[in-house]
Amino acid sequence: MAIKKFMFVNRKAPYGSVYALESLEVVLISAAFDQDVSLAFLDDGVYQITKNQDTTGIGQKNFSAAYKALGDYEINKLYVEKESLEERGLTIADLMPLMWEDEDDDYQEKSSIYLVNRAEMADIMATQEVVISF
């Protein structure tokens, strides 16, 4: 099978709608197809990967931990838009640390999160072959 550059674009907050959860399900499946996968978190999508999510009060499953598994599936290009964080009073410190192990570099733990500005995000989007947005 050919390898394409896939980008999954997340622009919605979790829990208020099912898009974030079901987006994550697609992303996890895509790992099995050996594609060149990246994720974009912009606008309210940045809320999908905030720290300290606690869903006990709403009776939904907290699926935020699943983002931490992405690195194990070699999905390690998570682009987070700087302006989207700033507009929401957030910084990168408010996000979960999402890591992957680089087996070509003595299994060093590296961050999967790339903080990019809006212009850089546009450039990254422009290089994609398949863009699936939620």
Partner: peptide
């Protein structure tokens, strides 16, 4: 165009 992106 080479690709499409939907802004939902």
């Amino acid at each position: 165009c080479d690709t499409t992106q939907s802004w939902l």
